[in-house]
């Protein structure tokens, strides 16, 4: 089963995204910020197949997470999507340059997430 990690400081968002991804066949684990996510990932036996990450979070924000995640060669090809309230083009460019593959602006719907998974070639 493909594995996804959802990183967001809002429990409600983690639940909604988790539910959407499990509908698309993912086994989902969650973290409340970037640091917690890195710890969980490093302790896991294998790399995830997809990461969804918020921007504004305590301890380690989404952009810092993306940089740290991409710095590790074993994660260089893992599809990563930012899901955030940041809607400035400059921010989006920074996220993409840091290694995000896709970007979703909140508020989102299940359909928007599914469309983006299609853009990433992860679902039909």
């Amino acid at each position: 089963m493909a594995k996804a990690m959802v990183i967001d400081d809002s429990r409600a968002i983690r639940m909604i995204l988790g539910r959407t991804l499990s509908q698309h066949g993912y086994e989902v684990s969650t973290a409340g910020n970037g640091r917690e996510a890195l710890e969980l990932l490093n302790a896991a036996p294998s790399s995830p197949n997809l990461v969804l990450v918020d921007w504004n979070m305590p301890e380690m924000n989404g952009l810092e997470f993306v940089k740290a995640f991409r710095a590790d060669p074993k994660y260089s090809d893992v599809p990563l999507m930012m899901v955030t309230t940041e809607t400035e083009i400059d921010q989006m460019v920074r996220a993409l340059e840091a290694g995000a593959n896709e970007y979703v602006m909140k508020p989102f719907t299940d359909e928007i997430i599914a469309d983006k998974l299609r853009v990433l070639g992860l679902i039909q």
Binding site: I89, M92, E102, D115
Partner: peptide, 13 residues
């Protein structure tokens, strides 16, 4: 909501 759907972020920016 329309640019969020299906439009790759690289083209949006």
């Amino acid at each position: 909501i329309e640019v969020n759907r299906g439009l790759p972020a690289k083209y949006l920016v």
